[in-house]
Write a protein that binds this DNA or RNA. Sequence first.
DNA 1: GACTTGACAGACCGACCGGTCGGTTGGTAG
DNA 2: CTACCAACCGACCGGTCGGTCTGTCAAGTC
Lengths: 208, 208
Amino acid sequence: MVERALTEKGGETRRRIVDAARTAFGERGYSATSMTDLITAAGLTKGGFYFHFASKRDVAVEVVRADQARMQAQVLAVASEHVRASDQLVAMVRALIPAIETAKGMAGIEHLCAELRADGLDDPAIVRPHDVWVATSAELLARAKAEGDLAADVDPLAAARFAVGTFIGLEALAAADTTATGHRLGMDPDEYLRFVCRAIGLTPDLLD
Amino acid sequence: MVERALTEKGGETRRRIVDAARTAFGERGYSATSMTDLITAAGLTKGGFYFHFASKRDVAVEVVRADQARMQAQVLAVASEHVRASDQLVAMVRALIPAIETAKGMAGIEHLCAELRADGLDDPAIVRPHDVWVATSAELLARAKAEGDLAADVDPLAAARFAVGTFIGLEALAAADTTATGHRLGMDPDEYLRFVCRAIGLTPDLLD
DNA sequence: GACTTGACAGACCGACCGGTCGGTTGGTAG
DNA sequence: CTACCAACCGACCGGTCGGTCTGTCAAGTC
């Protein structure tokens, strides 16, 4: 029903709801989180909540959208500081690590999207959150190939899928690890980058 | 309450429940699947269900355990047909692809375990289902190193984490892809293997 | 044929679910 | 002072949740 808050105060409350929802969904999952959980975490009541959002699902969608927008903005800004595409990719990955700290990582978003998909939601932008990363990476890899930094026999799209898949997989592994290696990926980000670059035959300057 | 069925018929029903539960949990997730869903899918009633399992959580745990046992048995049997550790690893990965077909893949198990973890369950064998794969791979990689098939400067454990993380990440990517690439990993299994072997510096005979 | 027991049926329970709605509040504009 | 409205409150609703309990019934067993 309501799509946008009209007042500064309202907007702040709305943001508070989304923040609380991201945390709650990240910790307990979508369907295991009740409206009561969400509402008390946001510090208001049923009526207050439903003034800002029409349903539980709507908040979840906004959580995903907001997180994607924030991450992309953060990451692409850092990438644009470099000239060669291969270096932009390396910078992107490095910037991604702190960017995912606030959420339960990309794995958290991934889980949330999977539950929303199972719930019948079919918006591709929501239901396949990493497509944008695959597309971005593929584009950069294609440029890197043109710049001579990527092996000629490597398909940029396949390599991009590999890089992104590796990232979220390692993060899922590390997230389940209660003994906490200290790194979000279960290994040093640069070690991850070295592995990936060797795999797909990418030779950036930034990684030595 | 009940841990083991005593009759042949009872055991069969129990298996039917676990099968139905695996499918249901894979499609809708743990907490989004109700007891009614489980029961009707298994083709019996509440009383019948609770004769075999004490709780919803108990079935979920058995789903995970049964799947792990089945996969390990299948995969390790194939691996043992080869001599060199590096070839065993390649054979393992190839055997894993058909082995995960029945479930919603390893990503399905991963999601289920994540929900159980969020639900308070803390059995490490359940809550971190891929640890066994990391351990197995690390052991094989250590042997491969001794056999001269793994680069000397690569840590077997880190490489194992990378290989397993990559696998489950790619599978999660592919699972979300409704346009269905046809491959469980979103790419040809051998292409995945080539990427990984290049990344960690493994040189198996099986892969040419 | 009386008794036991494994396997299942289904009515029932209180708690809690996501969502609604009439009402209150506090700031602002006339 | 009054009128208005975005923002928020919380009692309430029908339905569903996971789980319990009593009962039935076929297949042994003696």
